[in-house]
Simulated assay, not measured.
Amino acid sequence: MIVGRRALRAAEALDLRSLLDQPDVTDRLWDEAGRLLYGMSRAHGYSKLHEYRDAIAVCRRWVELAHLQPATIDRATALTALADEFATGHAALVLGDLRVELVATMKDVLTAWIAELGPVSAWMTQRVAALDAPGSGFAVRVVTSEPNPVSMAEARVLIDGVPIAARVFGCFEADPPEWVLPRLVATAEPKEIVLDENDGDELRVTIVREGDEVVWRDWRCQISARLLRDFRFDAAQYDREVDRVTHDHSWEWPARTVARLINERLRPDPAIRARCHSTWESQDLAEIGFSYPDTPPYAAFRLMVDVAGRDPAEVADEVLAGLTYRRLTSR
């Protein structure tokens, strides 16, 4: 796929706006336009869509033409991925209020395509069901890219529809939910958190509960002058959103669910030097890493867990039971 500045130059050289404004737009041209828009939106970390002078017109026209395209799995995958960028990625900054209309249209098209295509991937089903463009106030959306075979998971924090990491860093990739979500809990004691980071540069903000409001203030970042004003949120709404996204695991793939369940049980016990994560090779393969003994020098061990076709909760219980047995018999 052509990405970044190459995608920008290709769109400009082709005069993509004029091509899409023709009476008859071929399926091939529509597909290629989508790839260029996605390439400018993602760009290996830094979006170039804001540099494209015809971005808004081309995005609008491309979405208008979507319902005319024959439904295919590849086409639905591309539309799903770009819809997430319009809704909560850097493209949302370029589109402004228009993103709400475009995302709603994309969701309608995708819903019709899925009904026509029959069974599609769990990733596509989940992403289309969750698709929306957050409006005013505080919001968090966990977004995953198309699994190939396993994707990244980003916890995108938005304020008044603006994706904060993209706004400050100019990049698309937010930190994963297990890093971000625990930090968002607001208490009466002010705490400075790292909301996101990019190549070692941290975006920091102080969060404090003041009566029936949660306040975000004192933004700091080493590399960016694009810092934000103070924000005040209704505390009840803020708490509901943090609770909702913390307990919504519908985006997880099987191995990631197993990893989360195992880590939740292991974390409170400091004597157990083990952590679990899903591998990059498969959505159904989890890896537990151990170190022993409790003091250096350590020896490292790995245990691979196959989750394919099984209930992740049952797999986690079996793994934890085995770890408990090994720990007891080793004493």
Rank of each mutant, 00 (worst) to 15 (best):
P177F: 04
H247A: 14
D234L: 10
D108H: 13
V150M: 07
I56L: 14
I272M: 10
Y325E: 15
F301A: 11
L29D: 12
I164F: 05
S145W: 03
T80F: 00
G211M: 06
D108W: 03
L266C: 09
A166T: 06
V307A: 07
T26C: 07
I2G: 01
L184W: 05
A274T: 12
K107E: 05
G161I: 02
D97K: 15
L8M: 13
V25T: 09
L110D: 03
L14R: 09
P149T: 13
A81R: 02
R260L: 03
I2C: 00
V205M: 05
W113V: 01
R75V: 01
C59N: 02
E173V: 13
R260T: 07
V142N: 06
V162L: 11
T72M: 00
A313W: 08
L228E: 15
H249I: 09
S18V: 09
V109W: 05
L98Y: 12
F169N: 05
L82S: 00
F290K: 01
L29N: 12
H277S: 00
A43E: 03
M40S: 08
L323Q: 07
S330N: 08
R260I: 02
A299V: 09
I262P: 02
A321C: 08
V128E: 00
L158A: 12
L79Y: 06
R229P: 09
